[in-house]
């Protein structure tokens, strides 16, 4: 519980502004709104599929602001050459969902 969320405040601000620009409904973004953004990263679709699996923590097919931050974090790390983990490490789980 005391582990700080690995998504830094300045990154969250960036991800939040992207989130808001995608016109969330009820604070949620559906898969068809998030998909083109992730595809824009040019990462392989199987990698993006895993990013989605890890980000959609409640598996409702939509991402809230915290889940979206996780997705964007993983995409940015992948673009820097870091492998996308097979399961979400505890520091990456948003504090609101522990």
């Amino acid at each position: 519980v005391d582990i700080p969320w690995v998504v830094k405040p300045e990154e969250r601000m960036k991800f939040d502004s992207i989130f808001d620009s995608l016109c969330p409904v009820g604070g949620m973004l559906t898969g068809d709104k998030v998909k083109p953004v992730l595809l824009n990263s040019k990462l392989p679709v199987d990698i993006l599929g895993r990013v989605w699996e890890l980000s959609d923590l409640d598996r409702d097919g939509m991402l809230d602001k915290d889940e979206f931050s996780v997705a964007m974090y993983l995409v940015y790390r992948a673009l820097e050459g870091e492998p996308v983990p097979m399961s979400l490490p505890p520091p990456l789980v948003p504090p609101s969902k522990r």
Partner: peptide, 13 residues
């Protein structure tokens, strides 16, 4: 290949 839950919720599958 992906964790349980099948994933009709995953837009990339």
């Amino acid at each position: 290949q992906y964790p349980a839950g099948g994933s009709s919720t995953n837009p990339f599958l």
